[in-house]
């Protein structure tokens, strides 16, 4: 038991040092701009189809599922604003972040992990190229920037999915639906939800890189790194979300 607790503290310490090193390397030149752009393309652009499909289904299903209850209370006209608020404040950020944890954190963990166990990180090191700066800093920055953009895409597509879902049993124009949505949206609905997605992205990147960078002991550890990255990143998203909701509730 003592050994287990000691190990957890050791891991927490190592993780904290890893994050501290990220910020230190971030502010010291040279910045690997080309690699950063390449990562934005891989992490952001290539995730758009997956995030869009998920967002569309979320909006559609949420509308169809909520309609009977809303109708029962005579509040069917509130359906567009209820669905869009749910999507923007909670569902789209969390589901998109979970998708990114599955797709991106695992990919980063596996990529860096396999580079570690096949000495590619050492090869960079002996070529006087800082692998932390080249691989870790660029990926964490890319996830921090791309996840919020993916969430915005999921929001928009999800609202459109809600529109399609609404029109299954009723008839409303797209213009009317969107004006209904916008009318009930406040800045305060958007701001905390957007801010928390930066943290989601940051932790997806950090956890993926940390797990990959600390892979050791052969090819089996690559799978472990990828798996552990997904599990830890997903769990951290829920914890961050809980904290974000508490803080938002406190201040707004």
């Amino acid at each position: 038991m003592v050994a287990f607790i000691k190990e957890q503290f050791t891991q927490a310490g190592k993780f904290s040092f890893f994050i501290a090193r990220f910020f230190r390397e971030l502010v010291t030149p040279v910045f690997q701009f080309n690699e950063f752009v390449r990562q934005c393309y891989t992490i952001g652009y290539k995730s758009i189809p997956l995030v869009s499909i998920t967002g569309f289904i979320m909006g559609l299903v949420l509308t169809i599922q909520s309609r009977p209850t809303m109708t029962k209370f005579g509040a069917e006209s509130w359906l567009p604003s209820m669905v869009s608020l749910s999507l923007i404040r909670e569902i789209a950020p969390v589901i998109t972040a979970l998708i990114c944890a599955g797709k991106i954190a695992s990919a980063i963990g596996a990529e860096i992990g396999s580079m570690k166990v096949t000495s590619q990180l050492d090869a960079m090191e002996v070529s006087a190229i800082n692998p932390f700066k080249y691989l870790v800093v660029t990926r964490i920055l890319a996830t921090s920037l791309m996840v919020p953009l993916l969430v915005i895409i999921a929001d928009l597509v999800g609202i459109y999915g809600g529109y399609i879902g609404y029109n299954v049993h009723s008839s409303i124009s797209l213009m009317r639906y969107f004006s209904d949505v916008v009318e009930h949206l406040d800045f305060i609905d958007l701001l905390p939800a957007t801010i928390k997605t930066f943290f989601f992205g940051f932790f997806i990147g950090v956890i993926g890189c940390y797990k990959g960078f600390n892979a050791s002991g052969g090819t089996a550890s690559v799978g472990q790194a990828a798996n552990s990255a997904v599990v830890t990143a997903s769990l951290s998203i829920f914890i961050l979300d809980m904290l974000a909701v508490q803080i938002t509730d406190l201040f707004f």
Binding site: S119, Q120, D122, A123, E125, A128
Partner: peptide
């Protein structure tokens, strides 16, 4: 150290080529 490393080449046992 990096300045010295630029004057040293290292051939790894497995080649360690960047596979991407």
């Amino acid at each position: 150290l990096n300045k010295i490393r630029l004057r040293i080449g290292f051939l790894f046992q497995n080649g360690a080529l960047y596979d991407s």
